[in-house]
Design a binder for these strands. Structure first.
Length: 537
DNA sequence: AGTTGTCTCGCCCTCTGCTGGACGTTA
DNA sequence: ATAACGTCCAGCAGAGGGCGAGACAACT
């Protein structure tokens, strides 16, 4: 087992789910973990020891929304099975142990997981069943294998070896002391010394467990338990591990569960369940599609009564789950929990390609499809040539441009009217570059109305712009301005553009468009001076 | 007392669609 | 230069599917 070398878990990896906290202590647990990020061992005053998940427990790997901290916890009175992980250091690969008094063959429903760390640095997980744990700290197990099939785990018998150093037990007790309450799987500066003494290392570095399921020989799935040195803080920042990478098909997960304790197998798929009721429900969902619970308001029907109850809230508007920070209230707990991210700023989903973070998995999924996929789906508008990346945006496009409006929309250039914006816009584009202003007296046509107004004066003789100094009249304001400057403004100095070739002066070269004209004239000037006559002052 | 079946709650997931800011284009 | 407009994009919520697991009554 070479889990320590895995800095980035492969896709197949699934995390061991954080052991469920006992409800009335969950808050306290959370606070403690938030405070120091250290996994803890809880003292169980009246228990026989640390209670662990059954053999199937860790195999029931659940996709996590939150990256778990590994919690070493003692059992609570609820008898919830908790995965127990312990670090075991061997002074050598041939280490032996002593003191097997803690073994209790009567406890057949418990299973331990331990970490074996040999001198070679290889770390392994050890399953051990049928043990009570009142003296867990005194136990060291020998590990021969690193990858086990489920069947192997179930029948596995571990060889117990004698501990070869007398003082090790005390050291280990110290390291795992409940009073110290670190509970972390430890490794660090003191490790060498402890190892030299045959004891157990202690440091504050957290570790990270992964469970990988992969096809094994003869069609059997193998469960690979990987003990990594990834610390929990690092993992906290990479929740995509459990979302984008660690997600596994539920069937694979269930296949692990199906062996042993799930006698009710589905005849149509590989699923298996603990109770017949679960099987019946599953068959209704997946195969028979029988939905006994029917809504009296609409045609909705559900497999479960609770789903109908939830659905009814969409009719009644009932929102029992009130946000404590704003006015939002939801119809179910999940939506409230999801909503709370808007207050906390939590973005638990991270794109594994660009590391952008998102509040919802669906948003991340869409991001990956749109930004990082090759064959990005496009949506063709049925009414025009527009292609839009998102279905929802196509809906907006249709709403804005192709919705029939009862109120007529008039073309700004002609009397035409339209009932949808797209048609109006397309029509108005036909007026572009169109010389739609035509003179009634001649063939002159132009694009702008103001040009036509000026032109018409050439036919009517109208000269509305009068010089206040000499009463001379002009058709255009601009002509009046030029006249006034030239003949009535004493400060006016006419600009003269001199041809560098012949030295003759010109009055018009004021803008860029004229610059090219001047250059052309200049070139012509060297060959044909007649051109100057057209531009001379 | 232990087992089994049913009911119920709760969690987590996906799919869907709306919204508004950002940004580029066009008039 | 500016405003209007269209598309891109992430944020967010609604709705419903699927399943684990506890509570409890009925049965053996």
């Amino acid at each position: 087992m070479a889990g320590a070398e895995l800095s980035v878990p492969p896709e197949q990896f699934t995390q061991i789910k954080e052991p469920e906290l006992i409800p009335d202590r969950a808050l306290e647990e959370e606070e403690e973990e938030e405070n120091d990020g250290v996994c803890r061992v809880k003292e169980q005053p009246d228990s026989a020891g640390l209670e662990v998940e059954s053999v199937q427990g860790p195999l029931q790997t659940t996709i996590l929304e939150e990256v778990p901290e590994l919690v070493l916890t003692a059992p609570e009175e609820s008898e919830k099975h908790i995965l127990t992980l312990q670090t075991v250091h061997f002074p050598s690969e041939e280490a032996e142990l002593q003191d097997l008094s803690w073994l209790d063959p009567q406890q057949e429903d418990e299973m331990q997981v331990m970490v074996h760390q040999a001198d070679s640095g290889v770390q392994s997980l050890v399953w051990f069943g049928e043990v009570a744990q009142q003296s867990l700290h005194q136990c060291v197990l020998n590990v021969q294998e690193e990858v086990y099939s489920l069947q192997e785990m179930e029948v596995m018998q571990f060889q117990l070896l004698e501990e070869n150093v007398t003082g090790a037990g005390e050291d280990y007790k110290s390291a795992m002391s409940l009073e110290e309450s670190t509970g972390s799987i430890k490794k660090g500066q003191e490790e060498e010394q402890l190892l030299a003494e045959g004891g157990f290392s202690e440091n504050t570095e957290e570790h990270f467990f992964l469970v990988e399921a992969r096809p094994g020989d003869e069609g059997r799935d193998e469960i690979v338990l990987t003990f990594s040195n990834l610390n929990m803080e690092e993992q906290k920042e990479k929740p995509e591990l459990d979302q984008a990478h660690l997600e596994k098909p539920s069937t694979t997960k269930n296949q692990k569960k199906a062996k042993g304790t799930r006698p009710h197998k589905c005849g149509d798929c590989d699923m298996a369940f603990v109770t017949s009721g679960e099987l019946t429900r599953h068959r209704r969902y997946k195969h028979t599609h029988e939905k006994p619970f029917k809504c009296s308001v609409c045609n909705y029907a559900s497999v479960e009564a609770s789903k109908l109850k939830r659905h009814i809230r969409s009719h009644t508007g009932e929102r029992p789950f009130q946000c404590s920070l704003c006015s939002y209230a939801s119809k179910d707990t999940y939506k409230l929990k999801r909503h709370m991210r808007t207050h906390s700023g939590e973005k638990p989903y991270e794109c594994h390609i660009c590391h952008a973070r998102f509040t919802q998995s669906g948003t991340m999924k869409m991001h990956i499809v749109q930004k990082h996929s090759e064959n990005v789906p496009k949506y063709q508008c049925p009414h025009c040539a527009t292609i839009i990346a998102r279905k929802s945006d196509l809906r907006v496009h249709l709403r804005n441009l192709h919705t029939y409006e009862t109120v007529e929309m008039k073309c700004r250039y002609c009397p035409s009217v339209f009932h949808d914006r797209y048609s109006l816009i397309q029509h108005q584009k036909t007026h572009k570059n169109e010389k739609r202003f035509k003179c009634d007296y001649c063939s002159y046509a132009c694009k702008q109305e103001r040009h036509m107004t000026v032109h018409i004066r050439t036919h009517t003789g109208e000269k509305p712009f009068v010089c206040l100094s000499c009463n001379q009249c002009f058709r255009q304001q601009q002509l009046l301005n030029v006249h006034f400057k030239k003949y009535h403004d004493a400060n006016f100095v006419p600009t003269v553009y001199e041809c560098p070739k012949c030295g003759k002066g010109f009055s018009r070269w004021s803008v860029n468009a004229k610059a090219s004209e001047f250059k052309q004239k200049q070139w012509q000037c060297s060959r044909n001076s007649v051109i100057h006559a057209e531009l001379k002052l």
